[in-house]
Each structure stands twice: as C-alpha cells, then as structure tokens.
Design a binder for these strands. Structure first.
Length: 441
DNA sequence: GCAAGATTGTC
DNA sequence: ACAATCTTG
C-alpha cells in the first residue's frame, strides 16, 4: 500500500456534522480512504446527562445518514476512545488521525494520550478548528496567554479575520471490509440525571432547520426579546452548538449578515470567550478561577429544594422546573437561579454547576462552569459582588407572570402581583412552599 | 486625604 | 443605564 492510499481516521467527538468540518474536509483532501469514527467512550457514557445521551443518539444516527449520502459511513465503537481508535488504525493501516481541537481537561488528556499512542505506531495526529468561531489561542492579549475580561476579547474577536467555512466533502471512500458497528438504541438508559419529557431532539439536519428558521425570523428581535422569560425568544441552538451539529462559524457568519443580529453574535463571542478561558484554565469546572474567600454553606435541604424547584421563590422555581421538564432553561432564568443558589443560599457554585450539568442538553464544560463562576463572583466578572434583586428581576423579565404560571402550576391562578411573591398574598396558595429568603428580594 | 470626574465593563 | 474602580486636581 502506498502512503497516499493509507486511510485517514476522522475521530468525531462533539463536532457531529459534515458541513464546515475542517478535520473531515482536510481528510477528504488527502485523497485516500477516510474512516469517520465515533467512539462511545465508557467514561463519557456513564457520566453524561441522560438528556445529552438522548441528543447524542439522534446526532449519531443523523451523522451516519449524512456520511452514507457521501459514499462513506460512520464507524461506531464502544470502549476507551484512544484504545478503540488505535484498534481501528491497526485494522485499516491508517496513516493519520484528524480531530477537532477541544478545551476541557478531559479533551486535553484524550488528545495527549492519542498523540502518545499514535507516535508508537508512527501515525500523525492533527487537530483542527471548528468547535468555536475563533480558535482558543488565536486571539491573545499582549502580555498574557488568554483574555480574562470579556470586552477586550469581544473587540479582538470581532475585528479579526475568520477562517473560510469548509464545504461538506463531495465524496468519501471507506476502506473495504470494515465493520461499521451500530449506534446503540437505548443510549439514555445509562448516564446521570433525569430524562426530561420535553427534551430537545438533535442532529445536523434538525439543527440546520432550527438555524434557518432562527436567522429567517426571530434573530432580528433578539435585542429586545432575549430577556423576556415568557416570550422564549432565544435561539435554542445551544445544544446544537454543544454537539457541533452546527458550525459556530457558519452561524456567526450568517448572523453577521443581519445588522439587527449583532447582540446575538455577541453571545456567540461569549461562548468563545469561555472556551479560551477553559483552554488556559482547564480546572474551570473544579476550582475558583479567581480565589475568593467566600463562606459557603452546606445547606443540603436548601440545595435539594432548589434542585426540585421548591424554594418558594416563584421565578427561581419556574426556572428549575423548566430545566427538569425540558433539559433546557432560559438564559435569564439561569442567571437568576444561579444567583439565588450562590448569593442567597450561599451554596457552592460547583454543586449548582453539577446539577445543571446533569440535566442540560446543552451542558458544556466551558460555558456552564464559566457562567456559574461568573455569577458566583469567582470567575471572569469584573464586578464580583454583583447582586441580583430577585423580585425586581422577576417583575422585570416576567411582568405578567406567564413564565411562572407555565412552569409552576400551583401558581397558575395567582393574581397579577402575587405571582411573584405569593407569601405576601392574603391567602397564600396551598401546596406551594414558603420562601427560602431571609428578607424580601 | 478627598471628592469630582473619567473610565471601564456589562450575561 | 449604571455602579465600581481608577485618575486627577
């Protein structure tokens, strides 16, 4: 076999698409056979949220169809990602492995192990962009390894030239005699957290439909409606981005075409911002980014009430119940519920972040824990003592209480002003807990 | 040492 | 729109 005929393995991780996939596009350009491979890692399978495993199953089935349309297939294995990749490499005589660069501690360790194992077999490992719009490490401040403050990052992010998006390969050739394996049917039987009844389904095909509808209609109103809890007028593309069913670059380029979508593009920069923080500080999910002397409390019963959406503070409970019901929470509600747990109950951000991570379909290490630390005051906020007035937030972002009523049925009949603070009503609603607050607001 | 004023950063 | 922090007289 000549060198050019030796296959390239494209190791898919959370970049489950064929369009604008630099690692796949580069593999197709090499010219020989391509082995699109996904390894269902045992550790990932046991630790992931059921809601994400459910989305993952959808995404893998869709990716397989897309690859088959191109003449290839998705090769699926289970076990340890590096071991299984090397097994496929041995069976096919692959010369190189392509994968997308990713930032979590888990991803960094996986890439490191992959490089070591590949070196033993004289194979190349090449990492490609695609998980973020601007790759971590490409926008770097003078005199530092990463941006610690969002606004300077935003300026650098916005003004730099982005790479050109890649087309899906025209045609893929799979090495012959390779067992493709199957996508497990009941992926969400393992994993942690609930399987939410209204969780989002996924995959590139569906994600692209959602993206087109968003850009076509609602993105232009984003600036004025994104904080309206009841309007539910955010993109809902977070899980699609989390699994890479959408290219964040393609989305950002398309959104940038509409002047009114500026504020939405800025949110995509926040996503990149947290990724470049995580790349430089991989312990983001475990340790204070900035060490603060905060007197955390254990408050197990308060934490349990928060998880269940039974704190007695309607806007908090509405958010927490939306999370359980949908595997998703409105961004504004994420800020409110996280502020309640860390600032009011004084429960450590790590416990809140872990709960979110066990439920969210879009649960992403960099975004989730970066935002939790931001709210808790240990992260990248320049104003770490920021405080949320919960009642003001509730009245401002859910003025007629429609969000609360939608998610907290005990309050469905509550009067206009009482829906935000039912403990003030002459007759507080039955079956709804009294608030875990030491003072109003 | 202090207050007015400028700057900074914003989820 | 606004508050925390930094600069200046």
């Amino acid at each position: 076999m000549s060198v050019s005929e030796r296959p390239t393995i494209v190791l898919f991780t959370r970049d489950l698409r064929v369009r604008d996939h630099p690692a796949l596009a580069a593999a197709a350009r090499v010219g020989g056979p391509v082995v699109p491979l996904f390894v269902l890692d045992r550790a990932v399978r046991e630790r992931s949220a059921r809601n994400r495993l459910s989305y993952l199953g959808d995404a893998l089935r869709d990716l397989r169809e897309e690859l088959r349309r191109l003449g290839g297939d998705l090769v699926v294995r289970s076990g340890d990602t590096v071991d299984e990749t090397m097994r496929v490499a041995a069976a096919t005589g692959a010369a190189r492995v392509h994968l997308s660069f990713d930032v979590s501690a888990f991803a960094a360790r996986r890439a490191e192990r992959l490089r070591e194992a590949a070196a033993d077999r004289r194979m190349e490992v090449a990492e490609f962009p695609g998980v973020t719009v601007v790759p971590p490490g490409e926008a770097v401040p003078t005199g530092g390894d990463h941006y610690k403050v969002f606004t300077p990052y935003w300026r650098a992010w916005e003004s730099r030239e982005w790479r050109a998006p890649e087309r899906a390969p025209k045609r893929l050739e799979l090495p012959s005699g390779l067992d493709a394996g199957s996508v497990p049917k009941r992926l969400a039987d393992s994993g942690t957290g609930p399987l939410s009844p209204r969780r989002q389904s996924g995959g590139e095909t569906e994600a692209r439909r959602r993206m087109a509808a968003w850009l076509d209609a609602d993105c232009a109103d984003y600036e004025h409606t994104h904080d309206d809890l009841a309007a539910d007028a955010t993109s809902r593309l977070s899980a699609d981005l989390r699994f890479g069913c959408l290219s964040p670059l393609e989305l950002a380029l398309a959104a940038r075409e509409h002047p009114a979508c500026g504020p939405f593009v800025r949110q995509l920069a926040w996503r990149d911002f947290h990724h470049q923080v995580c790349a430089a500080f991989p312990d983001l999910a475990h340790r204070d980014y900035r060490e603060r002397d905060i007197a955390w409390r254990s408050d197990d019963s308060g934490f349990a009430a928060w998880c269940e959406g039974r704190t007695g503070v309607p806007v908090v409970d509405a958010g927490m119940r939306q999370l359980l019901d949908e595997g998703f929470m409105h961004n504004r509600a994420r800020l409110i519920t996280a502020a309640f747990l860390t600032k009011r109950l004084r429960v450590h951000w790590k416990r809140g972040g872990d709960h979110f991570h066990a439920v969210l379909s879009d649960g992403d290490i960099a975004d989730n824990y970066g935002n939790w630390q931001w709210v808790a005051g240990t992260g990248n906020d320049t104003r770490p003592n920021r405080s949320f007035n919960l009642l003001r937030q509730s009245r401002r972002f859910d003025p007629d209480g429609a969000y609360i009523r939608r998610h907290v049925p005990e309050l469905a009949e509550a009067a206009g002003t009482e829906v935000h603070a039912p403990w003030r009503a002459e007759q507080p609603p039955t079956g709804y807990p009294s608030p875990l607050l030491d003072e109003d607001g």
